[in-house]
């Protein structure tokens, strides 16, 4: 049977993709970010850790969905998805190859489990989906695994509640586990952490909130899932609301998890960045060494 072996969180900001494309990923500004991702890249490149399929939770940034249609939870069931042209031409990355059998299985299972999904077959995927792939897999000719795009509306209010996202993750786990084929499935939650991209308050970063969020995501996601939207907005900035998507990933991992790797960095352009590898405690592998890495301004080196 298929299993959710791993949850990963990652930033998806377009500037990371641009830094790779323009050869700046090892300069003074971006170097610490990419260095923080190096252990994840090495870890995921090992055959036993490379997923067969990723359920990639992200928000579409007004690329595939305009004001005409605003699905709260959507799932890509098509064969392949092209990188979107977001105003500067499509990102020069491979097409995302879907897994229609598993995607349709998850879609049907979720609907029977009271999540009224929006299903799409044809859709371009934007930086929210492709930048995390680039950060984990570099610049290959094709992605090393199948990807099921799973866009969540966090742009037009109200987005789904944290509790609803957490419960959805649990339903995704059940759906994956009822798929007969033997597959290593990852669920990725992308976006965040604290950031605000609009108005006079733009540039907001809240390290204390972010580090507490990571801790609760690992140790007490149930309580975390009850945090109301207004607290995300006040504490983590208007775009910090993307963090609700991490609860979908966390919900898919069961009660107890082990953090194999825990990276936090300030700043990546306008944002604070968090990248985690989590696994269900009962099947968790070895933690990376070092396990916790903090970098950037105003952060003491961890461990």
């Amino acid at each position: 049977m298929a299993r959710v072996t791993t949850g990963i969180t990652s930033s998806h900001i377009p500037a990371l993709g641009a830094a790779m494309q323009t050869g700046k990923s090892r300069d003074d500004y971006w170097g610490p970010v990419f260095k923080g991702y190096d252990p994840i890249k090495e870890w995921i490149a090992k055959p036993e850790n490379t997923p067969d399929v990723i359920v990639l939770v992200y928000n579409d940034h007004a690329s595939a969905f305009d004001m005409n249609i605003i699905p709260t939870f959507a799932i890509g069931c098509g064969e392949r998805f092209k990188p979107a042209d977001e105003g500067w031409g499509p990102r020069p990355v491979p097409d995302v190859i879907g897994h229609p059998d598993l995607a349709w299985h998850i879609a049907q299972s979720l609907i029977l489990d009271d999540f009224d999904m929006c299903i799409f077959n044809q859709m371009d995927v934007d930086h929210g989906c492709t930048v995390p792939l680039s950060m984990m897999f570099g610049e290959p000719d094709e992605w090393p695994c199948k990807v099921i795009p799973f866009p969540v509306n966090v742009v037009t209010y109200p987005p789904p509640s944290g509790a609803r996202c957490f419960a959805l993750g649990d339903s995704i786990k059940a759906a994956v586990e009822s798929f007969p084929e033997d597959l290593n499935v990852h669920v990725w939650g992308t976006g965040g952490m604290s950031h605000q991209l609009q108005g006079p308050r733009a540039g907001l970063i809240n390290k204390d909130f972010d580090l507490k969020f990571i801790d609760m995501l690992i140790n007490d996601p149930e309580t975390l899932s009850k945090m109301p939207h207004i607290e995300y907005l006040r504490e983590a900035g208007s775009e910090g609301i993307e963090l609700v998507m991490w609860l979908i990933m966390r919900g898919a991992l069961g009660d107890k998890v082990k953090d194999l790797y825990n990276f936090y960095h300030i700043p990546a352009s306008n944002t604070a960045l968090g990248a985690l590898i989590l696994q269900p405690e009962e099947t968790a592998g070895e933690a990376l060494d070092p396990r916790v890495v903090h970098s950037g301004h105003s952060l003491e080196a961890a461990e």
Binding site: I13, P14, A15, A18, S194, Q196, L197, Q198, G199, P200, R201, A202, G203, L204, I205, N206, K207, F209, R234, E235, G237, I266, P267, S269, N270, A272, G296, H297, S298
Partner: peptide, 28 residues
């Protein structure tokens, strides 16, 4: 870039905004 556009909404210069981010961002 996103940073230039976001910074333009704060009343700060592009350089001031970039420096604020490097210094750990705007406090809540």
């Amino acid at each position: 870039s996103f940073q230039k556009a976001a910074g333009s909404m704060t009343g700060m210069s592009e350089a001031e905004y970039a420096q604020m981010m490097i210094n750990g961002g705007r406090s809540p």
